[in-house]
Each structure stands twice: as structure tokens, then as C-alpha cells.
Amino acid sequence: MPNYLQFLIVFLGGGLGSCSRYVVSKVISSQLESIFPWGTFTVNIIGCFLIGIFIGMIQRFQFHPNLTVLLVTGFCGGFTTFSSFSYENYLLLKNSEYLLGLLYTFMSLCWGFAATFLAIFLIRRF
């Protein structure tokens, strides 16, 4: 049986995350005109850092489980953009931008992992 309160919490967090993604992506894309998808890249790295902060804080301070549902599942799930990342890679490859597609994938993975691990480390350290 689903927990309806948690469903609503995910709904709220996801909506806030999606709206935040839209704003951040639009601002970045308007400032950096390029074939490289800077908006999505930036959102994904910020999202990786945020999920690290949220998980680190939740583990360290043992917050209520609903906060995990709100921040990690809801907000970060709505904020990060793996489907956009996938589609933008498709477009780069379709346009024969092979090196840029490889660079985008590599940078997203490396910086994403680094941001998550850095955030968890910082929360645990301080």
C-alpha cells in the first residue's frame, strides 16, 4: 500500500526541482551561447553536489525519513536531467559532433561523481 503522504512529498519536491532546473538551465544557456549544452551540464553537476549535501546531512544529523523523500527523491529527481542529457548527446552525435559528445559525457560523469563525493566529504568533515 503506497504511503500517500510520501507521494505528496515527492510531488512537491519534484515540482520545486523541475522549476528550479528550468530557471537555472535557461539562465546558464542564455549566458553561454554554444552548441555545448551548458545549461543541462550545470544543472546536473549542481544536482550531484546537492544530493551529496542532502545525503550527508541526513546521515549526519539523522533527519526524518520524509526529508530524504522530499530532497533526494523529489527535489533532486526533478532537478537533475538525465533524459535531457541523453537527448543532447543524441543530438551531438546526430550532428557529427563526436568529440563534443564524448567530452560532454565524460565531463558529466567525472564532475558529477566528484561533486557528489565532495559534498558528502564536506558535510562529514564540517
Rank of each mutant, 00 (worst) to 15 (best):
M107R: 01
W38Y: 15
M57W: 05
M57H: 09
T68A: 06
N66I: 12
S29P: 01
S96R: 08
F63T: 15
F7G: 10
W38C: 13
S83W: 05
E97R: 05
I55L: 11
C76K: 13
Q62W: 00
L118M: 15
T42L: 13
V69I: 14
F121S: 02
L92Q: 06
I9L: 08
L16N: 09
F11S: 13
H64S: 14
F49C: 05
F41Q: 04
Y87K: 10
L8H: 04
I45E: 07
T42V: 15
F85L: 10
T105Y: 07
S25G: 05
S18I: 12
W38A: 13
V72P: 01
F11K: 02
W111C: 13
T116R: 00
G39L: 08
W38L: 11
F7C: 13
Q6N: 15
S25H: 00
G112Q: 09
I9R: 08
S18T: 15
R21D: 03
A114F: 13
Q6L: 14
T68K: 06
I51A: 08
L122C: 04
S18W: 10
F106L: 15
V24N: 08
P37F: 05
L93Y: 03
G13F: 13
K94A: 06
F36K: 04
G74R: 00
F75V: 12
K94V: 00
L109V: 12
F126P: 00
F117N: 04
V43F: 05
S30P: 07
S108Q: 08
G78T: 11
M57I: 11
R124C: 01
Q6V: 07
F117L: 12
S30R: 13
V27P: 11
F63W: 15
C110Y: 08
F82R: 10
